[in-house]
Computed example of a mutant assay.
Amino acid sequence: MRVRLATEDDWPAIWPFWHEIVEAGETYAYPLGATSEEARGLWFDGSRVVVLVDGDGRVLGSAKMGPNRPGRGSHVGTASFMVDAAARGRGVGRMLGEEMVAWHREQGFAGIQFNAVVETNTAAVRLWQDLGFEIVGTVPHAFDSATHGRVGLHVMHLDLS
């Protein structure tokens, strides 16, 4: 498996798992019912987008990353991740996460902030903590989970200084 920069040609492989993840209503606040073109615009929004591919070139996951805020907040990065359900448990999220941390370090970011990690997404919370992120706060009832109702959103941070 390897991580490479994504191109617009990768979107047809990303779209099915992007759509499945968003429509499940458990981890992202992207709009439900987004068309493929709307979703592509949200994912390829000027951020650095990568894909993780297997030996056959099949896209197993994708991540986007860049500054969390413009201007005076641009020294802190952020990222979002999507992993195909068929590839979960194979280290795809970890490899994408490690790539994201390394890239932010190489680019000179002071830290990485995740604005909204759903507290019931325990696999993601555990992964980010394994990679050194800390929960710096939780906004109560800020995410409307399809399964759990209103749950908290963790703000997570990794200091790169």
Score class of each variant (00 low, 15 high):
T122I: 11
F17R: 04
A86D: 06
T122C: 10
V92G: 00
F17T: 01
V136P: 05
L5C: 04
E38I: 09
A146F: 11
E99Q: 09
W43N: 07
A63F: 05
F114K: 01
D56V: 00
V118E: 00
L42F: 11
G71Q: 10
V59H: 01
R40H: 12
D84Q: 06
I21H: 09
A13H: 07
I112R: 02
H154V: 12
T122S: 14
R126K: 11
R94K: 13
F17P: 01
P67K: 02
L160P: 09
L60E: 00
A87W: 00
L160T: 08
L96H: 00
V76H: 10
T7L: 02
V118Q: 02
G91Q: 03
A110N: 08
A79C: 13
A24P: 08
Y28Q: 05
I21F: 07
E119H: 11
G149Y: 10
V59K: 02
N121V: 14
T120M: 03
A63N: 12
H75D: 03
L32M: 09
A24W: 02
S161Q: 10
V139D: 09
P31G: 04
H19D: 15
M1V: 08
F81P: 03
W15V: 05
Q129A: 11
I14V: 15
L60A: 01
G55K: 01
H19N: 14
H104W: 09
R40S: 05
F44L: 12
G108H: 07
T122G: 11
A86L: 08
G108Y: 05
V151K: 07
G93S: 06
V125Q: 04
G93D: 00
L52V: 15
P70G: 13
E99C: 10
F133Y: 07
F109E: 05
T35L: 12
G25W: 03
E99R: 13
R40P: 02
Q129C: 11
T27G: 03
G66V: 14
A146N: 13
T7F: 02
A34W: 10
A34N: 08
V155F: 13
M156H: 07
A86T: 14
E20P: 06
S62D: 06
D159M: 09
M156V: 10
G111D: 08
F81Y: 15
E134G: 07
V139R: 13
A79T: 08
G66I: 15
I135P: 10
D56A: 03
P12D: 02
V155G: 15
E20T: 10
T35Y: 12
W11Y: 04
R58H: 02
S74N: 14
E8G: 12
F17G: 00
H148I: 05
E98V: 09
W128A: 07
S47V: 06
A34D: 13
D54M: 04
G152S: 09
Q113C: 11
E37W: 05
L42R: 11
G77P: 09
R90Q: 06
S74D: 13
G93C: 04
N115H: 11
A102K: 15
M1S: 04
G71K: 04
V151P: 04
E26N: 10
V53C: 13
V92R: 02
G93F: 00
W43D: 08
D56M: 01
V92A: 00
Y28G: 01
V53I: 07
R94S: 01
A29S: 15
L160N: 08
P67M: 08
D45A: 14
A102D: 12
W128E: 03
A146I: 15
F143L: 12
G71S: 12
